[in-house]
Design a protein around this nucleic acid. Structure first.
Length: 288
RNA sequence: GGUGCGUUGGCCGAGUGGUUAGGCAUUGGUCUGCAAAACCAAGUACAGCGGUUCGAUUCCUCUACGCACCU
């Protein structure tokens, strides 16, 4: 009889305390921790992304923590493929329950439900469209999308340049409308999925965020930022905790202001995470 | 005690005799390969009393508070 395979996903807004929770769940199920965090997976960043401490990673194997490079832009699509393969391997090694922990809602959904078979971006085309976005503005790209794919045009966030570019690039690459790739169906997964969401009262969460940012600075965040400064234009560094601190190095404003901005943007981020999960009825919420 | 200036939503800050500046914060939301990204939306404030006026946040009186200067 086949063993019951279960993926336990621990999710929640940044700074809620997922790391501590994942530790106890991993111990309970004798599972490694599979991270689902779009920034902690870059090896060049660690303080600003609040990766789990060294000691913890020595005790329990972690995956998708600092095992990719900022020089190879990562995407939710890659995560779906790689994480699925990893899970398959780990289940085959005998695990019945695997613990996943993370805060990237889009990545979690990609893994659980799957993305449709869109082509991935062609870097040159993407760059060209982004340049046009900058030079001509969204309006011009929107008009082009309207003629190539009226369905997407109607459905898309009309002002969201990034989305318009994505839709347009798929149309141009394939000769088919972007919308024609969307099936609206979920892929089947060869394991059960259980989601536990951790949350806290808003004020408490915000206070934790503010304190954690201060702690990061104490721990040498500015050194990390300085080291990454030459790469500040990379997509991976368009990240809270870094993008606000590069201007400090340039003397645009002081460290104090930089810290305030990181705190603020982290709060915004936490709110967006909560908003993403608000409509996911499969999550069992737990107040910490 | 006197004179002058000021008092705008959580904060900053413009402005007007009659379609509610704006920014930040806050709150809500969107999301199919950059997602810690990108984007959308919401709140109806003019210190208080009275007056002038068809109508006052805007003009006038007084009161309170703040600042400055004078005796």
């Amino acid at each position: 009889m086949a063993k019951r395979r279960r993926l336990l996903i621990l999710l929640g807004p940044t700074a809620v305390g997922k790391t501590d929770q994942s530790l106890s769940y991993a111990r309970r199920y004798d599972s490694p921790i599979i991270s689902c965090d779009s920034r902690q997976l870059y090896r060049e960043m660690s303080i600003g992304t609040a990766v789990p401490p060294e000691a913890l990673r020595a005790e329990i194997p972690h995956y998708f923590i600092r095992d990719h490079s900022i020089f190879e832009p990562y995407t939710a699509g890659k995560y779906e493929v790689e994480a699925l393969a990893l899970l398959e391997r780990l289940f085959n090694e005998g695990h019945e329950t695997l613990v996943m922990a993370g805060g990237s809602g889009f990545y979690i959904d990609a893994l659980c439900k799957g993305l449709d078979d869109f082509p991935s971006a062609d870097p040159e085309l993407r760059a060209m469209l982004m340049r046009r976005l900058g030079e001509e503005g969204v309006e011009s790209l929107r008009m082009e999308l309207k003629s190539l794919d009226p369905v997407s045009y109607a459905a898309l966030d009309i002002a969201n340049g990034q989305r318009v570019v994505r839709a347009l690039e798929v149309c141009l690459m394939t000769g088919r409308p972007f919308s024609s790739f969307k099936t609206g169906s979920h892929k089947a997964r060869p394991f059960e999925i259980e989601k536990i969401g951790f949350t806290r009262p808003r004020a408490e969460l915000y206070a934790r965020i503010d304190a954690r940012v201060l702690k990061m600075v104490e721990d040498g965040l500015m050194e990390e930022v300085r080291r990454l400064y030459p790469h500040r234009a990379l997509p991976a560094l368009q990240t809270v905790g870094y993008k606000e601190l590069f201007p400090v190095l340039e003397g645009e404003y002081g460290l104090e202001r930089g810290v305030e901005l990181v705190q603020r943007n982290t709060r915004h981020y936490a709110k967006r995470q909560l908003s993403w999960w608000a409509r996911d009825k499969d999550i069992r919420w737990e107040m910490l």
